[in-house]
Structure formats: structure tokens, C-alpha cells
Amino acid sequence: VTLFVASYDYEARTEDDLSFHKGEKFQILNSSEGDWWEARSLTTGETGYIPSNYVAPV
């Protein structure tokens, strides 16, 4: 399981994006799509795309 933590807050801009807060942890589901990764929030359980430059490895 690949875990990352949010370095910043992010507000979703499309329905496919995932909003999150600094400190929130994610399981990365797919990182092969470039700068936007499909992730599941371990806080909310929601799945969506997050900007990879807003998160760091745990």
C-alpha cells in the first residue's frame, strides 16, 4: 500500500477531483496518469484525482 500525506489544502475544481485538507492521508490507487493521481482518502473514504505536487510520501 502506497501512502501519501497532504502538504496543503486543495479544493476540487471538477467532479473527478478530490478536495482535501493538509495532513489528510491517502492510498494511491493509480499514479500512471502524470501529475494527477487517483487516490482514496483514508479520512473520508472518498476516491478521486489529486494533484501529485500537493502530497508527500508518509
Rank of each mutant, 00 (worst) to 15 (best):
T44G: 02
E33N: 15
S41I: 06
A12G: 11
T14S: 14
H21P: 05
L3Q: 07
G23E: 03
A12T: 04
P51E: 03
D9T: 07
R40S: 06
Y8A: 12
Q27T: 09
N30S: 10
T2R: 11
D35E: 12
N30P: 04
V5A: 06
P51T: 02
S7E: 14
A56P: 04
S41H: 07
G45W: 06
S52H: 07
P57M: 09
I28H: 00
A56I: 15
K25Y: 15
E33D: 15
T14K: 14
A12V: 01
A6F: 01
E24H: 06
T14C: 15
I50G: 01
D35R: 07
K22R: 10
S52M: 09
E46A: 12
Y8Q: 12
A39D: 03
Y8I: 08
Y54F: 11
I50K: 00
S52I: 07
G45P: 00
D35K: 07
D17L: 10
F20I: 06
A6W: 02
S7P: 04
R40G: 04
L18A: 00
T47A: 07
R40Y: 12
E15D: 12
E24C: 05
G34W: 09
W36V: 06
A12C: 06
E38G: 02
F26N: 00
Y54G: 07
L29D: 04
V55Y: 03
L29A: 04
Y49F: 12
S19Y: 03
E46K: 15
L18W: 04
G48C: 04
E38W: 15
V55I: 10
F4K: 01
S52E: 03
A56M: 14
V58M: 12
V1I: 13
A12F: 02
D9E: 06
N53G: 11
G45M: 06
T43M: 09
E38K: 10
G34Q: 12
S52L: 05
S19N: 06
S32D: 11
I28G: 00
D35H: 09
K25R: 11
T14E: 08
D9M: 04
G48K: 02
W36T: 06
S31E: 08
E11V: 14
E11K: 11
D17Q: 15
V58C: 10
S52W: 08
D17H: 15
F4Q: 03
S19W: 02
E46C: 12
D35S: 09
N30K: 08
F20R: 00
R13P: 07
T14V: 07
A39I: 04
W36G: 02
Q27H: 11
Y54K: 08
E33L: 14
D17T: 15
S31A: 13
S32V: 10
V55W: 03
A6P: 01
G23S: 03
S41A: 06
E15W: 08
E15I: 10
A12I: 01
L3I: 15
Y10R: 04
W36K: 10
K25A: 08
E24L: 01
Y54E: 03
E46H: 11
R13I: 11
I50D: 01
I50M: 02
E24P: 00
L42S: 04
G23A: 02
D17M: 14
T2M: 13
T2P: 11
T14G: 15
Y8P: 00
V58E: 11
K22Y: 06
D16A: 14
G34E: 13
S7D: 08
V58Y: 12
K22F: 05
P57N: 05
S19G: 07
K25I: 15
D16Y: 15
T43Q: 09
T14F: 15
G23M: 02
H21C: 13
L18R: 01
G34D: 13
E24T: 07
L29G: 02
V1P: 12
F26R: 00
L29C: 08
L3V: 13
A56W: 10
V5N: 03
E38V: 14
Y10T: 00
T47D: 04
L18Q: 02
Y8F: 12
D9P: 06
T2V: 13
S19Q: 04
R13M: 11
N30R: 07
L3M: 10
R13T: 12
D9K: 04
A6K: 00
S19F: 03
T2W: 12
Y8C: 15
T43L: 13
E46F: 11
W37D: 02
A39K: 00
G23C: 06
R40A: 06
S19A: 06
V1R: 09
S31M: 15
W37S: 01
S52Q: 07
L29W: 05
Y10A: 00
A56S: 13
P57S: 08
D16P: 04
G23R: 00
S32P: 10
A12Q: 06
E38L: 15
L42R: 00
Y54V: 06
F20Q: 00
Y54R: 08
W36Q: 06
E33I: 11
L3N: 05
F4A: 08
Q27Y: 14
K25H: 12
S41C: 07
V55S: 02
T44A: 02
G48L: 03
S41P: 04
E46L: 15
P51L: 07
S41K: 12
Y49R: 14
L29V: 07
E11C: 14
R13G: 08
V5M: 10
E38C: 15
V55L: 12
E38T: 10
D17S: 14
P51K: 06
D17R: 15
G45C: 09
E15R: 10
T44P: 02
G48W: 03
A39Q: 00
Y10V: 00
S32N: 11
F26I: 05
L42P: 04
Y10I: 02
P51Q: 06
W37P: 00
R40W: 08
S52K: 13
A12M: 04
A6H: 00
H21Q: 13
P51Y: 08
E24Y: 04
H21G: 07
G23N: 05
V58H: 08
V5Y: 08
T44R: 03
K25T: 12
K25P: 05
Q27I: 15
A6Q: 00
F4S: 02
T43S: 12
R40K: 13
R40D: 03
Q27P: 00
W37E: 03
V5T: 07
K25M: 15
S41Q: 05
D17K: 15
W37T: 02
W36S: 06
